[in-house]
């Protein structure tokens, strides 16, 4: 009697599990979008067309929106290692920037909310690591690159200027040379 009950329960469990497993294999074969959602988002986008769109156009999906007063004040880049760069904003928030591989290193771009563009280029040859950070800021401001040893070349730009910070690190003798220069209103 008990044996029959268990058999029936087991069979019901098995049957239920089969049906659930079959339902689990059902894949979505419908449309890959919802017109209702897209129309809604499009409507909002059209309303906002008058707003600046530099960041959106660049498709940089996270910006240092916290950079003080819309400038580059106290925004820093540091620890450019391997294929990553960490940008530290004025309020201490950190953003991890992925760099894509190039023939002799890695590079990547980062655009802040106020339209400043950070172009990071890293090359490594014969133990010498060169990091260039080009900063193009429409609002002007100050930027700093901080190295592991604490060296921190700083550069100030006027609105529309392009700034460049270059760091050369030679692993062989441990010496580091830091340069900062402003391209002087060439935009």
């Amino acid at each position: 009697m008990n044996h029959d009950m268990h058999t029936t329960t087991d069979a019901a469990d098995t049957r239920m599990n089969e049906l659930l497993a079959r339902a689990r294999r059902r894949a979505w074969t419908g449309p890959d979008h919802a017109p209702r959602v897209e129309e809604h988002l499009k409507g909002i986008t059209m309303k906002e067309q008058s707003k600046p769109t530099l960041t959106r156009n660049a498709m940089i999906l996270i910006g240092v929106g916290v950079v003080a007063t819309g400038s580059l004040a106290a925004a820093v880049t540091r620890s450019v290692l391997g294929h990553h760069a960490t940008i530290v904003a004025g309020d201490g928030q950190q953003y991890d920037v992925e760099l894509s591989e190039t023939a002799d290193g890695a590079s990547g771009s980062f655009v802040t909310d106020d339209g400043a563009v950070y172009d990071i280029d890293m090359t490594e040859q014969g133990g010498q690591k060169n990091v260039t950070v080009d900063i193009n800021s429409p609002t002007g401001g100050t930027s700093t690159v901080i190295l592991d040893n604490g060296a921190s070349p700083r550069i100030t730009t006027l609105p529309g200027q392009t700034a460049r910070i270059e760091i050369t690190e030679n692993k062989a003798d441990g010496q580091k040379r830091n340069d900062a220069e402003s391209d002087g209103g060439d935009n």
Binding site: A58, M59, I60, L61, I62, T86, I87, Q93, Q94, Y95, D96, V97, E98, L99, S100, S107, G108, S109, F110, D119, I120, D121
Partner: peptide, 10 residues
């Protein structure tokens, strides 16, 4: 705290 960000290749 480190947050991930996007980049575009130069």
């Amino acid at each position: 705290m480190t947050q991930a960000a996007c980049s575009i290749p130069t």
